[in-house]
Design a protein around this nucleic acid. Structure first.
Lengths: 330, 330
DNA sequence: ATGAAAGCGCTAACAG
DNA sequence: CTGTTAGCGCTTTCAT
């Protein structure tokens, strides 16, 4: 059905290795036959078969990407960074979504390797699984935003510093009693943010009150519920640092619908700077993460390792976050 | 380096065709050797090579998906539907992002076919290019949300009806002078929405005023600028139907920051029902599109054609939209 | 039930 | 410069 180099060799009465050489711009063909081959290939509608090529060259120019959720705009932007960088480098992406399910994740890991991907970019559904994958993953790979282990490549944002900067800022603006409405306790990222928050308080000699540090899902509802708990505490709270922007939205929802005036009575700070944080109706003060760059670096580091697997050293890239001041803080 | 069926055949002193049979659960092997093979495969850490398999079976169990933008949550959700359906059916997705660039789109089309995808799901950057692809695309494919041509598979939402329902609703709620702040004139989808808007007006014997139908980019800024134009018209406008939710956000932004009270003085209606339309701070009345289903159907229709290429008939799936009433209309 | 062998489409030695 | 050949890892047909 589809035309192969053999077909075009036959039609030109030359050997098919010459065709291969001509098509791949390899030395060893006269300019003349080269031209004839190229023209004939076009005329016959020849399309190279990358599987056959990959089989002999042992590389697919394909990267597997495993993330928990694509509808979440944070991962959406990271993925965009990955894909664009891949495109520039002539790689194509297999995208896999785990829905935070560790079994699906493991299945994808297997499938991707059977498909002969040249490498894998992985955001685990559970950070503590990373180390377990060392034997399972036999191709170069890199972890996106996870626990840092010295012998695994990693790209992440400096979460601790981000939370430190944010807390510091709230303090400067005069907020006295700052709570932390965090996400999942299993999330390494999240716990780093807690550490940053604590270190800022300690630096200002403020006693850390464990009752003001709560955890819940990384969702809008998670934020809403924590706000309810925190604001109905007997302690007076004048600011809430949310585990991420989506949670901050929930905090905002509870606070405004229960009569708290923002930012004076209550300051709210998020983390991520997702797209809708800057909507005029929201204007959330937050910690910006370089999402696109996160993706781009992940791919580029991975490519480096793929290209020089022999003497590759493990890399640990840390991108710095930034405070973005909007209207939910005074 | 990696272990093949030959290796495990050698280690067991049997032919490698037997190994293949055992591993693939094919008849022609005794239960005993089968067990031995499977066990040995596990012990040696055997991973099948899908490229080699694909080469002989002439199928990759891989689908190419080409969309303009993944950070846009509309496409994000559609993609999620595609990927989950693919996962269920044992297919993996090559995701390609065109950034609305027709040249990148064409390049991806080529790459995907060289990679031997079994089929392609395509949302074109420019709707009028669909027909030009008939010769270029040699595998089964399906268009997502585009112009409808009888001999090409298509999955779309009934945009005309969606706009009709929306306009009808605005009329019922007492709005008298409704403008349409549309997206790109090149977008077939967009023009269908205009048609629905017009048909609702005509049905109510309202004269269609061409000055109230404007076009711009499908972006927040696009909506903002159109709102400015429309509201500074000499005509009194009391409702704006935006081309999509992102534009509606822009309309909302302009209107509120210029003192229009919503929904009484000005009603605003969107299209899509993207995630943040329902945020408490936004509460946008809009036309819901079944995005996830759109993706799921696209994949399933495509799979049908792949599986029965011979006598496949072209399909044209139209999903119905739904009005979602929130707070930007009275 | 098992093995031998051909071949998927291609690249890369090796001869000539 | 060109052709012949082997082989990537696998499935499948044909003998045995």
């Amino acid at each position: 059905m589809s035309v192969t180099i053999k077909d075009i060799a036959k039609s030109l009465n030359i050997s098919y290795s010459s065709v291969s050489r001509a098509l791949n711009d390899k030395p060893g063909v006269s300019q003349e036959t080269k031209n004839r081959v190229i023209e004939q290939a076009k005329r016959m509608g020849y399309q190279p078969n990358d599987m056959a090529r990959g089989l002999v060259k042992k590389q697919s120019h394909t990267i597997g990407v495993i993330i928990p959720d694509i509808a979440n705009s944070f991962f959406g932007e990271v993925t965009e960074g990955i894909i664009e960088a891949a495109n520039i480098n002539g790689y194509t992406i297999f995208l896999c979504i785990t829905n935070w399910d560790i079994d699906i994740e493991r299945k994808y890991l297997k499938t991707l390797q059977e498909k002969q991907v040249d490498g894998i970019i992985l955001k685990t559904a559970k950070d503590n699984y990373e180390s377990k994958y060392k034997d399972i993953i036999t191709v170069p790979y890199i972890i996106l935003e996870g626990r840092s282990i010295y012998d695994i490549n990693l790209v992440e944002v400096n979460n601790k510093r981000g939370a430190y900067i944010g807390t510091k800022y709230l303090l400067e603006r005069g907020y006295k009693s700052i709570a932390f409405a965090g996400g999942s306790k299993d999330s390494h990222t999240n716990m780093q943010r807690v550490k940053g928050y604590i270190s800022a308080l300690e630096e200002s000699s403020i006693k850390v009150d464990k009752d003001l540090i709560l955890f819940n899902d990384f969702t809008t509802k998670g934020g809403y519920d924590l706000a309810e708990k925190l604001l109905n505490n007997r302690k007076k709270i004048d600011a809430i640092f949310a585990g991420n922007d989506v949670m901050a939205l929930g905090v905002l929802d509870y606070a405004t619908s229960h009569g708290y005036s923002i930012p004076d009575e209550l300051g709210v700070l998020g983390f991520d700077d997702i797209f809708y944080a800057e909507l005029p109706q929201i204007q959330l003060t937050t910690i910006y993460q370089p999402k696109y760059e996160l993706g781009r670096y992940a791919l580029e580091i991975l490519l480096q390792e793929i290209k020089d697997k022999e003497n590759a050293i493990n890399k640990h890239i840390i991108l710095e976050p930034r405070l973005v001041v909007r209207n939910t803080t005074k």
